[in-house]
């Protein structure tokens, strides 16, 4: 049969170009919750046409059949212009930005501060705020890299994380 791989499970990064109308996000989110699809990450921002169109990047996971269904369901929403499965249509880049607060006071000897700075340097995280008690690091990268950095900061006084979720784009000349 033609669809032997329909049951294989995968993660998909889907970009959706939509009219920037009120309710569009509710429509997309409602579609996912109403039909029981996963949302691992969802980002949205106006990108084109003087703010009239927005791009939604969704990271989701499911069987091939479910992912194809998600794409078809998104595509039939009236304000949706285009749906692109970045993780299937070719190589793509996926990045998130994160700000992470680590509380590691000077007075506790400073080893944690030094260690946090060393790791931040290795991960190319930037210090965007510092006090005698804390750092805020800013970091951009793929989800796995951000996850790894979070785990390293955890024993050093990780206090708070703010992540943007994934923005993604195809490599090369391909556009959505």
């Amino acid at each position: 049969m033609a669809n032997d791989n329909m049951n294989s499970f995968r993660t998909a990064t889907i970009a959706v170009l939509v009219d920037n109308e009120p309710g569009i996000l509710a429509r997309v989110v409602g579609l996912f919750s109403g039909r029981g699809y996963n949302i691992d990450s969802l980002t949205v921002a106006a990108v084109e046409d003087g703010g009239q169109r927005s791009r939604i990047n969704i990271v989701t996971s499911g069987t091939e059949m479910v992912i194809e269904q998600i794409k078809a369901q998104l595509d039939r929403l009236v304000p949706v212009h285009r749906v692109s499965d970045l993780s299937k249509d070719g190589p793509h880049l996926a990045r998130e930005m994160m700000m992470i607060k680590v509380i590691c006071p000077h007075r506790e000897g400073g080893q944690n501060r030094a260690e946090a700075l060393r790791l931040a340097d290795a991960f190319r995280a930037r210090v965007v705020d510092a006090s005698t008690e804390s750092f805020v690091f800013e970091m951009t990268g793929d989800t796995a890299k951000l996850d790894a950095f979070v785990e390293l900061m955890r024993p050093l006084g990780l206090a708070e994380i703010s992540r943007t979720g994934v923005a993604a784009i195809a490599r090369g000349t391909r556009v959505i």
Binding site: M1, A2, N3, M6, M65, E68, Q69, A72, D75, R76
Partner: peptide
């Protein structure tokens, strides 16, 4: 006419 009806419940060859 609705692509979301296709391969929703039953996988099809064509």
């Amino acid at each position: 006419i609705d692509p979301s009806s296709i391969n929703k419940n039953v996988p099809v060859e064509l």
